[in-house]
Design a protein around this nucleic acid. Structure first.
Lengths: 247, 247
DNA sequence: TCCATTGTTTCACCCTATGAAACCCTGTTA
DNA sequence: TAACAGGGTTTCATAGGGTGAAACAATGGA
């Protein structure tokens, strides 16, 4: 049963240390050690290495660690001209101007989804979406899109994951996915966050493979269920246009 | 003479692999191995580990590696409310609108400087500055600012670095730094890049410590030496205002 | 078909990452 | 002032695991 691991333990641990900084911004050595369950001295050595290469720096006032400039340097090279999050930005802005609500772009990464791009509504009351956020695949309009239109097999694979919420009614959920698959879009109303609602449509590339979910989200008193269904055609069309932009 | 290293070799190597992606965006395994001088199988294991944690993914068409979404996730947490690159952005935009040229913000990182923020000029012919770029400390207006106003000791420390260009006339350079220190700002004219010029002024925090260099750059036919000296007071004032914003 | 190139896997060796414990600091309490 | 607590740092023997040579597989030109 043992899956052979072809990875390097010390590196895994160092990367786990780095990933601590995805929540919260400053950590002490002991905090990190406690969080990933390693010895102080081990974490100390890993942090020294990360610091040497500029992936973390320490706040000399508090003596705590924070992300370093190498991360900035890397992220600058993350966005490439063939990257959906760059290519599709103008279309996202156009949709934002059309509907006056925040527009986000999600991709699936294993058993989660990641918001790879976002343009904010300009209204006083608006949904604020941060780029890079990692969210569960079990709730939210874009989650349902990413599952409903995924290649055959992944739906079952994801829902078999031990991390999948067991209290969720599977039968009803699958039924919902099939409905979404037929309708061509998904909605969510105060599903993940109270007071928020969203409509989402799939983006397919030229060969018909799902690459991302386009999502429009806002306060639930503006994005009522009726209003969301009114918006749906515009969103689907934008998603279709985006698909043709991609290779 | 041997400086005791308290770092983890495997992690160092893995981070070096990651740092390959700061230049160029896609790399094959063998390319990377050649570049850092490691064995194919070693790099293979490191890449497998990085991939497992989402720091790299592979383009399934070309089989080459590229940066993964974990980097995006980290970079989202880089920018904090107490981060100069966020807090000073509005002031930078104001200065850009005032002078109609590209405005950049640099900090020193060891023996280099890093552009941590930039707002682009809107003119047709303009300097384009990418955030995250890492540049030498030996040329450019902001380099000279970062050295001239640094705490005592760092100037000598940097110039003693083996990476410091030996062909540079040290006497003349130090004299220039002293002049800059007296004038309160620095200029460069086609110094690092032909056709480009820049003016730069220091930003100090409340306790008088140098935190960054504010730099205005553009094409050398617009930013003539005369014009640069005309602009200097506005830049110095903006830098001063920014200093008061910081803790 | 053959060759060239790249990614993958195996395996024995010995380097090196590990964690317990001791140590050093700085600030706080009695 | 001493005693304490809480962090970060250093040391060191041990064995666990990272390493690289070499063999292997999978491509895709020529």
């Amino acid at each position: 049963m043992e899956e052979e691991k072809r990875t390097v333990r010390a590196v895994e641990r160092a990367l786990d240390v780095l990933l601590c900084f995805t929540s919260g911004h400053e950590w002490g050595l002991t905090e990190i050690a406690g969080r990933i369950g390693l010895h102080k001295s081990t974490v100390h050595r890993l942090l020294a290495t990360l610091e040497d290469r500029g992936f973390v720096t320490r706040n000399m006032d508090t003596d705590k660690y924070r992300l370093g400039l190498s991360v900035l340097e890397l992220s600058a090279n993350l966005s490439r001209s063939d990257d959906p999050s760059v290519v599709l930005l103008p279309e996202m802005e156009r949709l934002r101007d059309q509907l006056s609500e925040t527009v986000s772009l999600y991709v699936r990464d294993r058993s989660e989804r990641v918001r790879i791009q976002a343009v904010q509504s300009t209204q006083a009351i608006r949904r604020v979406a941060t780029v890079g956020a990692r969210l569960p695949l079990s709730v939210g309009a874009s989650s349902k899109v990413l599952l409903a239109f995924a290649e055959s097999g992944v739906r079952g694979f994801i829902m078999a994951d031990p991390a999948w919420p067991s209290q969720l009614d599977r039968i009803a959920f699958v039924k919902q996915l099939d409905e979404i698959s037929a309708a061509g879009y998904a909605t969510s109303f105060e599903e993940r966050e109270p007071g928020a609602a969203a409509v989402s449509a799939p983006i397919f590339n030229r060969s018909g493979k799902l690459v991302a979910a386009l999502s429009v989200s806002g306060p639930s008193n503006r994005l009522t269920p009726d209003r969301m269904h009114e918006h749906a055609p515009a969103i689907i069309e934008a998603a279709h246009r985006m698909g043709t932009i991609l290779g």
